[in-house]
Amino acid sequence: MNKLLTTIFAVAVSCVTVSSLAQEVKGDAKAGETKNAMCIGCHGIKGYQASFPEIYKVPMISGQGGKYIVAALNAYKKGERKHPTMRSIAESLNDQDIADLAAYYSTHGAAAGAELPAKPAKEPSADVQALLNKANCASCHGANFSKPVDPAYPKIAGQHSDYLFVALKAYKTDNNPKVGRGNAIMAGMAKQYTNAELKLLANYLASVDGELKVIPQSKFR
């Protein structure tokens, strides 16, 4: 009986693995470049600010990890990330579109041979280091905050501080139909901090050298 159950379990795991591999869509960066018209109006302008749910610079996505971009867009599409504009954009994209955009932005502006140091050159203050240690941020986002242990996690080094602050607060938001992010792990981490502490973390992470950037578009389509 035990042997039969073991065999059934192995077959089930095998089927799930094959299914997940079959569902993985390969992105084409060149195709993504032709599909980014809805992206460049915000993410392709240096200093561009969003006004919902408060004023902040839109995140830099050039140089961001491809699998994270896929995960984020799907989260907006499913409503796990509650942002009306981003949800409407994500809902207009199919899986191939999302994969192509992720492939494009993950390589957009990447410098060949460029390598960040293993740890940030700028040391945090003792207070900030204590906050980083509290949730062990480096355990997921990497010691330099630009090499996450899982490619579905974001690079956060050098990201705009005001965006990081808004994003972190969103994980603390519950039962709001228009604002919030449904990620149990990040919610548990973010809720350990006051908003003042989150702002300190965001300011430090923004000051760290990273691979994220805004690359102005030569034209709008």
Rank of each mutant, 00 (worst) to 15 (best):
F165E: 09
R181L: 07
P151Y: 01
I61E: 01
V25W: 05
L21H: 15
K26P: 03
A29E: 02
G109R: 12
N2V: 12
N176T: 06
D28L: 10
F9A: 13
A37C: 12
P177I: 14
S161Y: 14
A114S: 09
T17N: 13
Y153H: 14
G44W: 08
L212W: 01
A110E: 15
A196C: 08
K147P: 07
A111D: 04
A50D: 03
Y104E: 05
M186G: 04
A10R: 02
S20P: 02
D100P: 05
D174C: 10
A135I: 15
K57E: 04
I89D: 12
S146M: 00
K78Q: 12
F165T: 15
I156L: 08
N2L: 10
M60A: 11
A152R: 07
M38P: 14
G182K: 09
Y204W: 07
I185A: 15
A184R: 15
K213D: 02
L93G: 03
I61G: 02
A103K: 14
C137D: 03
L164H: 08
K82E: 00
A90H: 11
G109C: 13
S161W: 13
I98M: 10
S92N: 15
A111R: 10
Q159V: 07
L212P: 01
V208M: 02
M60E: 14
H43Q: 01
L164C: 03
A10L: 11
D127E: 15
Q49D: 00
A50G: 05
E54R: 11
E54C: 03
A110P: 01
L200Y: 02
T6N: 06
A121P: 08
N133K: 14
A111C: 11
H108F: 02
G158L: 09
L212Y: 00
A138S: 11
C140T: 09
D127A: 07
K77G: 01
P84V: 10
G79A: 01
L93Y: 12
C39K: 06
L200N: 02
R87T: 09
K178M: 13
N136A: 14
L168K: 07
G44K: 04
C137L: 07
Q192D: 03
H160W: 13
S218Y: 05
A90F: 08
A170Y: 13
K219L: 03
L198Q: 02
P84H: 02
D174T: 10
K172E: 13
G63Q: 08
K134Y: 03
D162M: 13
N136H: 07
L212T: 03
V13M: 10
A112N: 09
K178H: 04
D95G: 06
R181F: 10
S125G: 15
